[in-house]
Simulated assay, not measured.
Amino acid sequence: MAKNSTDFVLRPFEGLPGEPDWVALKELVPAATATARTTKEYGARDVLVTTVLPTSWPALHRADGLVLLALQTTSSSNDVSRDLAHALLEAIEVEPGTAVETIGLPEPGPRLQDVLDLSVPFEVTVQDSFAYWLAPDTERTPDLQAAIEEADGGIIDTVKLDAADAAYWCRMGAREFLRWAQPHEEQVVLDGLARLHAKRESGFEGAKFVGYFRSAGLVVPVWELAKGSEAEDVEKPLADFLPRFEAALADTTPLDADERRARAGLVARQVTLR
């Protein structure tokens, strides 16, 4: 995608390390951080990518000099990657202790793929508090503490699983789910799911396939888990299911009639987040 393009970008995180995790942090995970670094051209600065910042700030140059970039913000243009890169570069330029509160509609310019060092792994840490908004030596005034505690109250229990990339267990009320962002093209994922669903194999031990989201050009299948399931209960069943799922994704033979019907049913249940 050219730097000066104004066309809509379906997969804004394509080409970044860990594209499915970028999507998960933007749309699914309430509180998490991940590692990134700008290229030498842009200062070789360490960046803490985060789900959200206070009052929906796009970015923050923390008092200790660390730059934080929030993903769960409203995009101003047709290219989320360009908007985020604009916020990041602005945050680098402002004084420590300053937030980038709004970016408006950025002019055509570099995207995250141009600004970030693509050799740096996107390593996600799910957080149970937004205390990381503050530098470690920041004084916790009563107002600051109250603001963090209020934000923490909206966090749902979420765990990043080890059995598969970009797979997240979460508890929503009295129900537990697995949400698993896929790196493959949408048609590949839907065909694979349809092959399994037609054979009644789209679920696995303790997990029932219930549908999928579409977000930032990727598919995020969702399984409802057995009531009361903890994250550790899902690891082995998911690991056992993975080869079967990968085989279905790799199958390029035409769908048969049952599989086509299954696929049509899946499409009818999809939800587009962004």
Score class of each variant (00 low, 15 high):
5 S>K: 04
7 D>S: 14
9 V>W: 01
15 G>Y: 09
16 L>N: 09
17 P>H: 06
20 P>E: 10
21 D>N: 11
25 L>S: 02
27 E>I: 06
32 A>E: 00
37 R>C: 11
38 T>H: 09
43 G>F: 00
43 G>D: 12
45 R>D: 09
45 R>N: 12
51 T>M: 04
53 L>F: 02
62 R>I: 01
64 D>V: 09
64 D>I: 13
64 D>G: 11
65 G>Q: 09
74 T>W: 06
75 S>M: 12
79 D>T: 09
83 D>P: 06
90 E>S: 11
98 T>R: 06
100 V>C: 06
103 I>V: 13
103 I>M: 06
105 L>T: 15
107 E>L: 12
114 D>G: 10
120 V>L: 08
122 F>W: 05
122 F>D: 04
126 V>W: 01
127 Q>T: 01
129 S>T: 15
132 Y>K: 05
134 L>N: 07
138 T>C: 07
139 E>Y: 11
141 T>D: 10
143 D>C: 04
145 Q>E: 15
146 A>W: 04
149 E>F: 07
150 E>Q: 15
158 T>R: 03
161 L>M: 08
167 A>I: 11
168 Y>K: 01
171 R>H: 10
175 R>T: 14
180 W>Q: 05
182 Q>T: 10
182 Q>H: 06
183 P>R: 10
185 E>Y: 13
186 E>C: 11
192 G>M: 05
194 A>T: 02
194 A>F: 03
194 A>N: 03
197 H>A: 14
198 A>L: 12
202 S>C: 03
204 F>H: 02
205 E>Q: 10
216 A>G: 02
222 V>W: 05
225 L>W: 03
227 K>E: 14
232 E>H: 08
243 P>W: 13
250 A>K: 15
253 T>F: 13
255 L>F: 11
264 A>G: 11
266 L>G: 03
266 L>S: 05
267 V>A: 14
267 V>D: 11
271 V>Y: 09
273 L>C: 08
